[in-house]
């Protein structure tokens, strides 16, 4: 009995030792020399491999960063979800001064909720915006409207987008959004835009909450809050900073020019302009808004 135990222990142990030697030799032979800094920089990155930087995952960016640091210039590389904090840390690691990156956020540009743009048809099929978009005009008849199926919610790696069951529209949670741009790529109707978070702690920002380029009358038929291209906001803004432009019946607010004064918000006859703060209420415009709402 004892003999048996000894023999089996010895033979198994011998086999194990043999393999260990083989494995060691192989690992030494085929070792790939990797810059240890790549690994360390990867550790500093958020590690979610979202790809927003344009590289295949965080290690990809880390590799590019190390390479760029060796050549002496790391500008042009950034980690959108990590933001300036992360980049600052990495800059310190390499001994570079990093310019502070603008904090940005994903903004939905559609107000076609179930109450503003009621469903005209019933969609039956896979819960995928991409498929619904390739199939037909969409549930509420607006060819630019949100399809309410939440491809953005699925695409968001930070759970920063939630579909609101009451409106049908997605909502961006500012605390969680890292502006990685996954939603921008996921939306088949290009409804998301990465915009600066805006001034101050209150993150004052203003944007046109619509992408519809159809003539005003047609757009309004499907949606109460569509931009009808009337140009009132452009005229208001022209006296201030000329941040609003009009193209194809659709206004656009340049976030880099906009000073978030909010004066364009109340003049919009269809309430198509959104602001993150309470806009000023000039007497005249106030009356008009009240009329449209009534």
């Amino acid at each position: 009995m004892n003999e048996l135990l000894i023999y089996s222990a010895l033979s198994l142990g011998g086999v194990a030792a043999g393999f260990a030697v083989v494995l060691y030799v192989i690992s030494q032979r085929f070792k790939v020399e990797e810059d240890p800094r790549i690994d360390e920089v990867t550790q500093m990155l958020p590690g979610i491999n979202c790809g927003a930087c344009g590289f295949a995952g965080c290690s990809g960016l880390a590799e590019a960063l190390v390479e760029a640091a060796d050549s002496g210039d790391v500008s042009g590389l950034s980690c959108p979800p990590g933001g300036s904090e992360t980049m600052k840390q990495i800059g310190e690691y390499f001994g570079f001064e990093m310019g502070s990156t603008h904090k940005t956020i994903a903004v939905l540009r559609c107000g076609g909720s179930c109450s503003n743009a009621p469903a005209k048809t019933q969609y039956q099929g896979p819960s995928s915006c991409a498929i619904a978009h390739s199939l037909y005009v969409g549930i509420n008849g607006c060819p630019h409207s949100c399809l309410w199926l939440g491809d953005c919610e699925i695409a968001c790696p930070f759970d920063a987008i939630v579909m609101n069951p009451d409106t049908g529209l997605p909502e961006v949670i500012p605390e969680l959004c890292t502006s990685c741009g996954a939603c921008v790529r996921a939306c088949p109707r290009d409804l998301f835009e990465i915009r600066p978070r805006g001034k101050g702690k209150a993150e004052r920002r203003v944007w046109i909450n619509c992408r519809n380029t159809q003539p005003g009358g047609v757009a309004r038929k499907n949606c109460k809050v569509a931009c009808i291209g009337c140009g009132k906001c452009v005229r208001v803004c022209n006296d201030i900073v000329q941040a609003i432009s009009m193209e194809n019946n659709l206004a656009y607010i340049d976030p880099h020019k906009c000073i978030a004064c909010g004066k364009c918000v109340p003049v919009c006859p269809t309430n198509a302009i959104m602001a993150t703060f309470e806009p000023p209420k000039p007497k005249q415009a106030n009356k008009e808004t009240a009329d449209t709402q009534a």
Binding site: G125, P126, S128, A130, I131, S134, L135
Partner: peptide, 12 residues
């Protein structure tokens, strides 16, 4: 399963 829906999307 919505096979054709996904195949059409793939084609696009």
């Amino acid at each position: 399963r919505p096979l054709l829906d996904y195949i059409k999307l793939s084609k696009v």
